[in-house]
Nucleic acid binder design. Sequence first.
DNA 1: AGATGTATGTTAATAATGTAACACATTTCA
DNA 2: TGAAATGTGTTACATTATTAACATACATCT
Lengths: 208, 208
Amino acid sequence: MKRAKADIPLKTMERLVTYRRLLQYLAAEGRVFVFSHELAKLANNTAAQVRRDLMIIGHHGSPTRGYSVRLLTAHVERLLADHEPSRVALVGAGNLGRAILAHVGFQLPGVTILAAFDSDEERTGRVIAGVRCYPVRELESRVVELGINLGILAVPATEAQEIAERLAAVGVVGILNFAPVPLRLPNGVVVDEIDIGMKLERIALCCQ
Amino acid sequence: MKRAKADIPLKTMERLVTYRRLLQYLAAEGRVFVFSHELAKLANNTAAQVRRDLMIIGHHGSPTRGYSVRLLTAHVERLLADHEPSRVALVGAGNLGRAILAHVGFQLPGVTILAAFDSDEERTGRVIAGVRCYPVRELESRVVELGINLGILAVPATEAQEIAERLAAVGVVGILNFAPVPLRLPNGVVVDEIDIGMKLERIALCCQ
DNA sequence: AGATGTATGTTAATAATGTAACACATTTCA
DNA sequence: TGAAATGTGTTACATTATTAACATACATCT
């Protein structure tokens, strides 16, 4: 009997997202098989962790050859792909916002970036990396119209809280925040911060 | 007797970095005291965890008022600041690189960004957000000259591996990688990836 | 064909985290 | 002044996550 998705712990699911990405790279390189310790190195964890995760999802590899990149990809994808793709808006089309669009592309597995917003009228109306940029005063109406449920904040720190509240008010349930300021939002909203400075400080700590 | 740094687990030290940052924000807002459950909310963990961490470092707060932002900041800073500031170079002065410089600023506690590098001669020679930009062919000599030990990679995916190897070859011990590709480096080098696409996918997963 | 080496699948042990509980200190309010 | 309310400091416990260990299976090589 196949293990239901509900039985898979969230941490494992999150690592599966990582594995999927890594497997894509490996496939692109033409790799056919991969060992648990190789995946572990790439994912910054341990071989035991990888094997345990794959055990949890009921995937089996071959001793001496490892895991088939193709089969494992298919298996992981099947587990991750059973929800509708999230619909994402980016707010703030400055250097960082444009870099994010260019870097990420507008099409990811499970995620589609549908709109960008900016307060600077010079940046609106055009299409950046495949994503149309609207004036920020249309935020609420466009979010509703396009069925956006996730937001990326690439605005100055001073505006982050306000924009976040406006997004949450029209039904956005998850926010990825690049502004170096903590957001205070109602409990229903999932917030993930990317604080580059803090990341650096933590690496500095490890390397001391 | 004061608890020695060696007794503090790494996980706690990492959270201290987060607390320090949050305390700075609170101080900037004019907050004088903070409760464990407030810090917990901002740090995305629990009040018990905060109290435990502060217990470990031997910090004491006041019942009914919580912790003095100023005193706690000083205490945390004393623990974190006992190593030389890390010396950082940014490679890739495109949209993302410039955004990082502008966002982070070049001065962080424990971290100083001393140089930027780019292959485009148009971007070199000038100063971006307080950081001088050198041509990438001078990478090795400048890294040695400036005593750089940490690198930020904001280059296209195709170049990331090569640049990372060049950095590692001249003694860089930690790399923060924004390129959406996993790096393979000798074991001595600490690598932290910021894969924006993957972050999005993970939020999408939580909100499903 | 048999021995050897290696990586898997799984279980056991360890570590980390979350939850609950409660005595005590401090402020507030009557 | 004294009682009520609240949050700390601490311990104990439950739960979860990570690491280590090891028997088993599969290829390879002689």
